[in-house]
Amino acid sequence: MRKAASLLFAGGLAFLLAVLVAKLPFGETPMVLGKQVLAQGAEQTGTANLVTSVVVGYRAYDTLGELSILFTAALALGLVLGKRNAAAPRDPDAGLVLRASADLLLPLLLVVGFYIILHGHLTPGGGFQGGVIVAAALFIPILARPSRGLDHGVLVWLESLAGALFILIGLAALFQDGAFLEPLLGKGELGRLLSGGTLPLLYLLVGVKVGAELTGLLVNLADAEAVE
């Protein structure tokens, strides 16, 4: 009975959406905001990747909210799962092949991750994408050597610092009679690494914060079995 009702509800929702979607102007959307971003984005923000100019330029305030959500999730997850029991036995280390590959992967992944973060304003990628790769780079050695564990203190400081700096850069503009999160510094030459003013800096902070938070999330979840 309950299942039949559920199916009916979901079927109704799907039908409604199908009818609605059939009339959507696919491929010919009005693009009211989009056209303006395409026309003025490079000039106003100085980034070649216009998605980045939206993420940390026009909608940097959304990105701040997004960072806060990830921060909240990481914080709440840590509080729910609790501290790792120091006496709990850790898994044994992996074999030589895995350990050696992990050691090999760590620097490579870090380089790739930071490359993607730092070139977020020029090529596809950015703080979120690169931050995830950095988190993977830090987590793989932990998987290979569970006995070592990880210092949560450093991660907490990194998170705090990166988040606070993001807001402080935003506030710096405010104190120079600008608006909150207004891009500062010169725009530079379009397409160069050092261009786009403070936008790449903000994206770097996003990357560090996302990397630290995701690492913390993964380590907390991996330790979940060993909580007292």
Binding site: V51, V55, L221
Partner: peptide, 24 residues
């Protein structure tokens, strides 16, 4: 249009946070 791409990036990250909390 670059705007929806930025929006989706945001909403994916929100989803990740919520899912992680739910798994915990």
């Amino acid at each position: 249009d670059p705007v929806p791409q930025a929006l989706v990036l945001t909403s994916i990250v929100i989803g990740v946070g919520m899912e992680a909390l739910a798994v915990a």
